[in-house]
Design a protein around this nucleic acid. Structure first.
Ligand code: FES
Ligand code: FES
Lengths: 135, 135
DNA sequence: TTTAATGATACTAATATAGTATTATTAAAA
DNA sequence: TTTTAATAATACTATATTAGTATCATTAAA
């Protein structure tokens, strides 16, 4: 089971690259593609989606490109995952009403909820900046 | 992101049903299908796989069916997930060598490893019997 | 030898993921 | 104002995974 999809992976790589250049600068897709060797059109769509989601700002026209809207220190891995993969929700009912009809009382549900929340708080500590520092 | 695939879901339902009947009895696929309303041929394959994996024993011929090889108290949710979905491995390198080249030192990796192990030990506590008791 | 069960394997359908192509829009700069 | 260098929108295609079906072989009890 894979935890990270390719969209998330590419998005994170691109963001880390952008954070590494200079926080306020506008960076073009081509620059990222050249350095990170990612498929151009695919990455375009990913960045567009990041812009729509309010992580990046897009600048059209000549001298255009993308820049951070949210500062990279405030962009969490979970934010990116949520955009491309949806919420990581361990607390979803595992077995549907057929097996476990008593949703309110189900201790499994409770247990998983706690687990999920623990995982979530830990994951939320991982930001683009904390990742880019590793390099 | 869905944590539990349908195979796992159906397998767990079938096993809970079987555990509810009588521990040693041989149960046919048809019985399970009727009670749990699962797609017959699909469930067959699932039970076959459980037999191959050593969870169940299959009995061919008339009066045949499936019985537990591993007692339901010892069958963990994670065992089933592993059979149908592979290991839940948070510790996989998230970003490949492109982003995070220093696999040995990477603190993210370390952090995720701890997270994953925590999740794993908690999940391992959930067994077929503990689930069937909820009902 | 009939019958009622599983075993093996191949096939199909639906959905999700990954990636490409095309045309429109925008804004700087010549 | 026209050219140019960028993104926007949207539709398409390819591949992989998941979900489910069909067929025929095997087995063992009655
Ligand atoms: S598993 Fe769904 S309520 Fe218990
Ligand atoms: S994310 Fe892979 S080694 Fe750090």
């Amino acid at each position: 089971m894979n935890f990270i999809s390719r969209d998330t992976d590419y998005a994170v790589r691109a963001l880390i690259f952008m954070a590494g250049v200079s926080k306020k600068e506008i960076i073009t897709v081509d620059e990222i593609v050249k350095k990170e060797r990612l498929p151009e059109r695919f990455l375009r769509r990913i960045l567009q989606r990041l812009a729509k989601s309010g992580i990046l700002t897009s600048h059209k026209g000549k001298k255009g490109g993308f820049s951070f809207f949210v500062p990279p220190a405030a962009i969490r891995l979970t934010d990116i995952m949520e955009i491309f993969q949806g919420k990581i929700d361990l607390t979803n009912c595992l077995l549907k009403s057929k097996v476990c009809p008593n949703v309110k009382k189900c201790p499994l549900r409770k247990k998983l909820k706690n687990l999920g929340q623990g995982l979530d708080t830990e994951l939320k500590k991982i930001t683009i900046v904390s990742l880019s520092k590793e390099r």
